[in-house]
Structures are given as structure tokens and as C-alpha cells.
């Protein structure tokens, strides 16, 4: 008979994998049960937020705190602010942590977002090539953008409807400039990748400070050229999705999450975050 054993072996391997998975599953849940013996199974909450909060590592610190205190399993979906707000509007998330005040206001006014609270801020900065061909400096971002457009120096835009992108478009609008042409590059990607593109193309780029600090080590060709102006504030708000508009919204935990974010204890953690590594806070407390 032709070798029966191949298939027997293959079959056995598949069974083994299944068994392993089964075992793993029971083991996992067994551990969970052990860890949280006195508690009930954790409830689940979906947090839609921006890539900057995840990429900076802030969420890795504060989310576990919240989960532990409230017996909640938070599912963090890090996307652009535009998409995060859209998830809120559609009822696909329970809470939002975002940074595009004008767009957020529209969501709150429409009644899709409630319990809207200011949480923290950092600032946007303009970084550019060390040679600084457009010769921009100081703290006036509007003047700097005008100079960039005039000199047609390469500018790299997120182009992804994120909070940072919205901010950039706002500045162009205040300047009454419609950025277009070969010098204006739109990546459609996250902040990290966009900074990479700017470094390779020796272009100027608007970024949040947290991402810049985290990535500076990979970006030798770039430096900060404009910072500190009041127009460069990057403000983060938290809100919960209106449970009356959709089924299945976990408003109980979302409300707790909003309260948690503005709690003085959490605010201190936010303020301290990154100080050790970068010598400065990546986000500053900023409640109302």
C-alpha cells in the first residue's frame, strides 16, 4: 500500500494544533479566572483614538490603569481623528480620544458625542531640513507657511484626514493659500511614516511634538524650525458616544473613561509621561 503514514501524520499534526489551541484557550481563561477570582468577567469597551496617542506610548500606560480600576477590557482602535470621529458617529465605538476641535464640535453639536471634556495638550511644531532652504524660523506659523508656499519648498502633508492634517489645512486656510503643485506632497499615511518621507525628500512637515520626540533619532536630516506660537496648540478631548443614538453602546464604561481621563490622578500620570526619556512631557494636563 502506498504510504498511509504521510496523511496520518498530517492529520495528526492538525489535530495536535487544534488540541494545542483548545488547551491554550482553556489555560488562558483558567489564568484569567485565577487572576480575577473575586470579579465578574470584564466588560468590553471600544476606544477610538488617534495614532499619536498610541505611537507615543501613552495609551500603554494609562489604559491598563483604567482597565484594572474598573474591570473593563478596553479595545483601543488607533486610527486618524477623522476615522475615529466617524466610528463615533456610526456607533462603532463607545468613547473617543481625539484632537481636532473644529471637527469634534460638529460631532458634539449633532448630538453624536456627549460628555465632551478637554483632557490634555501638546503642541504642533514645524520641522524641516537642517539646510532650511526656505529660511523659516520663530513662532509665527502663518508667516512660515506663507514663506514655504512662496519659495515652493517641498512640504509633506499627512493627507489622511487626521487631526494633524486638519490642523495643517486650517493654517493654509487662514493664510488663504490653496497648497498644490509639485512641492506639496501628500502621503496619506500616519505621522511616523510621513516624517520618514519628509526626511527622505528633505521637506518641511507639520507634526505633533510627541511623535517628533519619539522619532527624532531616525530623522537626522530634520530639525525643528518653528515652534511655540499660540496657533500651534494641539488640544485633545475625550467624549463618549451618545448611547441614545445606537444600540449596543457601552455608555457605563465610556462615562467612567471620560471621568478617568480628567481625574487629577490620571492627569498627573499624563504630565509625567515621557519626562524621563525625553526630558520633557509629551502631553500636558489641560482640563477645564
Amino acid at each position: 500500500m502506498l504510504k498511509n503514514r504521510y496523511l496520518a501524520f498530517l492529520f495528526a499534526m492538525m489535530l495536535l494544533v487544534l488540541a494545542a489551541c483548545g488547551n491554550a484557550g482553556t489555560k488562558d481563561s483558567a489564568e484569567k479566572v485565577k487572576k480575577e477570582e473575586p470579579k465578574a468577567a470584564p466588560t468590553e469597551m471600544i476606544l477610538a483614538t488617534t495614532t499619536s496617542t498610541q505611537d507615543s506610548g501613552l495609551l500603554d500606560v494609562i489604559i491598563p490603569m483604567f482597565e484594572k480600576e474598573n474591570n473593563v477590557k478596553v479595545k483601543t482602535i488607533a486610527v486618524g481623528t477623522g476615522q475615529a470621529l466617524e466610528m463615533g458617529t456610526k456607533g462603532e465605538a463607545d468613547a473617543l480620544l481625539v484632537h481636532a476641535p473644529a471637527a469634534e464640535k460638529a460631532v458634539v453639536d449633532a448630538g453624536d458625542g456627549i460628555n465632551y471634556k478637554r483632557v490634555m495638550y501638546n503642541d504642533f511644531i514645524l520641522v524641516g531640513p537642517k539646510e532650511n532652504p526656505a529660511g523659516v524660523s520663530g513662532d509665527d506659523i502663518m508667516a512660515a507657511f506663507k514663506k514655504l508656499a512662496d519659495s515652493k519648498a517641498t512640504f509633506v502633508s499627512r493627507g489622511d484626514d487626521s487631526g494633524t492634517h486638519k490642523k495643517e489645512l486650517g493654517i493654509w486656510e487662514m493664510d488663504n493659500i490653496k497648497p498644490a503643485g509639485e512641492w506639496y506632497v501628500s502621503t496619506g499615511q500616519g505621522m511616523g511614516q510621513t516624517l520618514q518621507v519628509a526626511a527622505e525628500k528633505k521637506g518641511y512637515v507639520l507634526t505633533d511634538r510627541a511623535t517628533w520626540l519619539a522619532q527624532e533619532k531616525n530623522l537626522n536630516t530634520l530639525q525643528i524650525v518653528v515652534e511655540g506660537g499660540k496657533d500651534l496648540m494641539n488640544i485633545y478631548h475625550v467624549m463618549q458616544v451618545n448611547p441614545e443614538k445606537h444600540d449596543k453602546i457601552n455608555s457605563k464604561d465610556a462615562e467612567k473613561f471620560v471621568e478617568f481621563m480628567v481625574d487629577p490622578k490620571t492627569q498627573d500620570v499624563i504630565e509625567q509621561f515621557g519626562k524621563k526619556e525625553y526630558g520633557q512631557s509629551l502631553f500636558k494636563k489641560y482640563t477645564e
Binding site: T51, I77, L195, N218
Partner: peptide, 24 residues
Amino acid sequence: GGNIQGDTRILTTTIVMEVSKGNF
């Protein structure tokens, strides 16, 4: 999956995230 830490983070999605964090 949403690349959720400790839940749905698999090797490929983690690689994408670490690249965007600049942790090459």
C-alpha cells in the same frame, strides 16, 4: 483585529505599528 495590545496584536500588525512609531 484593530491591533489591540494583548488581544489581537499579531506579528504583521505589530511590525506596521512599530514602523510607524519609528522603532525600526
